[in-house]
Design a protein around this nucleic acid. Structure first.
Lengths: 366, 366
DNA sequence: ACGCCTTTAGATGGAGTCCTTGATATCTCG
DNA sequence: CGAGATATCAAGGACTCCATCTAAAGGCGT
């Protein structure tokens, strides 16, 4: 058992207060000292001291005072999202995508390469290297300047960053992705399943920003899920949480198969094509079985639909809602992801950010 | 959004350290100052100061020094479980059970009354009053001496302690249980679903003490589940987490029906009775569908079987394990609850304890 | 332009908590 | 009975937070 948040030194208190200040500035935007003091619950004097230290270390910066208002103009401070950069990599079957983001999750640079599911292990790793190389060059960064890197890929991933099982990608089981990346970037590296980090991305920058219990559905030619429980990514004891597709009653294995016959089924369905509509209906029926199992288990506030099919959500969202109503005690709100192709990579960057949390807020003493 | 653990006052630091000391003494048993200091990470002098304060306030007590050993004998301190008492009430269909426990969850007194599912609302409430009355009298306590009270009952319960929906108990939907109890006991009162609190009890005093992700199954004439996720009870957005029985593929509604025909099916199955074995097999099959949906969703470390049938677990545990192996990616460890009839009431007491957490550790400054 | 009002900036002293160091106390072992 | 080991107790110093006071910097009315 690790030590909880078990008190400690005086410096720990300062750490907590600095963390609170940073969090407020990050979440609420630029604030004056007086506002900050009220929001974090410290006295003005102490807040000033904390901010002074954060200024020196580079976590915050001063912005021009707000115009208007009575009294002496207050200095205003903002979170310095540009204080560090994060790398997020999405290693998929059909593309490898890497992004460099700032600490707020704004994508600064993005590069990708097309690949195929059949590609061999070393070729895929080479593609990863190439994409990381390019995006770092575009950002004008070397790997050791990064605060951290996150990698997302399909399949089960173990705690050390090794791919334990990947059915969709050739020669991918057993790859030590974290080890591979660690040689190329400084800072910590973490590998995680793509559905899981996509869920992270939705709570960070997506449509689930204020949900503490959320189910993310990756809807595409593969189907998967990522769970946010109690505000945190839920991995499960063996990192296999959310793998409801294994349940035969949840027809996630066969679900996308219904869509395979026509060319662009969704477009056809939009025009009223009977066969396409039937295919979509079948797809939704299978998909809904799995989602309702997840929803009944967790009773989330929100279900977010992402993945490749999400851009056609207008076609199947209503049928899905109706189908869920049949099974769920309380059908949660359903929203469609707006993060497009970058969702997974963005979530990987968030993984990196969480990893580098607890970076020192305090100036090192002499 | 509530304020996280957002730093604050100096006194907050003392609070955290006192909390750490109390937790260590509670979890690890009596310790000397030197051991305590190492375990909580404070200096010896500071630890001494904290313990001194806890002694004055009554959270800890001194015990005789350990015999043997070289050097000056160290004073030893223990957590004072008897510093407060908790009330836990289990309002079920067939019995109403109330316990008074100490802060460690040791049951000091226990009283129960038989009831029937058909009993009217006011009669059931009268039974609750009677049982609470008796157990308090047995403990020599008045209601206002209690630190808190927890109540568990079947059905969905809302945040304010009102029963939103109960199908098993007559006239029970809409009862304001918390309000009813609040008139009779001092301290905070909380109401929760019985499966959920039974899960709590298992992590407190049962077989799941060190599991942070656990699925509790209440197996009886009703079937239900309670979830521990990330070390905490997971309630869900609408307090309906774990209601997987609503999924038709999980045959939890009909599962116990298979057992209804024979008298004591489990006893018969134990003797090799064919019909009984078939009934049990069918029961297990239905039960396993629901459990595997929960397990695939959460990937818990542990599944705990409780409820009335758990005393016959020897008959169905192996078939259940085998059935789960068919569906689960990784079948978790399965254990049988040892808390017997008192599990739910004990969990209710834990509910009360969590409620009164954050009670002051510090002497009030004049 | 000048003074008044309001709000913030910056400085000072005090209180609370923790740490380090050293002196003293008590037990075991030889 | 002394040496060694370990614990208790006390004093001084460092760090963090708070309350309070004075100075500064704007807007606004005259």
């Amino acid at each position: 058992m690790t030590a909880h948040v078990a008190g400690g030194d005086l410096s720990r208190l300062r750490q907590l207060n600095a963390d609170a200040v940073v969090r407020v500035l990050r979440d609420e935007g630029p604030r004056t000292l007086t506002e900050l003091a009220r929001l974090v619950g410290l006295s003005r004097a102490s807040t000033e001291d904390v901010v002074q230290e954060l200024l020196e270390v580079g976590w915050v910066a001063e912005v021009g005072p707000a115009a208007g208002g009575v009294g002496r103009p207050a200095r205003r401070y903002r979170f310095r999202a540009d204080a560090g950069q994060l790398l997020g990599v999405d290693v998929g079957g059909h593309k490898v995508l890497a992004v460099v983001t700032d600490l707020d999750g704004t994508v600064l640079h993005s590069r990708q390469l097309p690949v195929t599911p059949e590609l061999g292990r070393s070729e895929r790793l080479a593609a990863v290297d190439a994409v990381v190389d390019r995006v770092l060059r575009a950002a004008g960064l070397t790997g050791d300047r990064l605060w951290g890197a996150g990698v997302a890929t399909t399949g089960l991933v173990d705690g050390s960053g090794r791919v334990m099982l990947s059915e969709a990608l050739a020669e991918w089981t057993g790859v030590d992705l974290a080890g591979h990346l660690r040689d190329r970037v400084g800072g910590p590296v973490r590998v995680e399943n793509d559905c899981k980090v996509a869920a992270l991305a939705e709570t960070w920058r997506g449509v689930a920003r204020h949900a503490s219990d959320m189910v993310f559905i990756l809807a595409g030619w593969r189907t998967g899920a990522g769970l946010i429980v109690g505000g945190r990514l839920h991995r499960g004891f063996g990192n296999a949480a959310g793998e409801i597709g294994a349940l035969p009653a949840a027809g996630w294995q066969r679900a996308p198969g219904h869509l395979r016959h026509a060319g662009d089924v969704f477009a056809a369905a939009r025009t009223g094509d009977k066969a396409a509509l039937t295919a979509v209906r079948r797809y939704v029926k299978d998909l809904a079985q799995g989602i309702s199992a997840l929803v009944l288990t967790l009773d989330p506030e929100l279900v977010v639909i992402g993945g490749g099919f999400s851009r056609s959500a207008d076609v199947f969202l209503e049928p899905l809602r109706a189908e869920l109503d049949r099974w769920c005690l309380r059908t949660p709100e359903i929203r469609v992801s707006t993060l497009a192709d970058e969702g997974v990579a963005l979530g990987a960057a968030k993984l990196a950010l969480d990893l580098s949390a607890g970076r020192s807020y305090t100036r090192s003493r002499n």
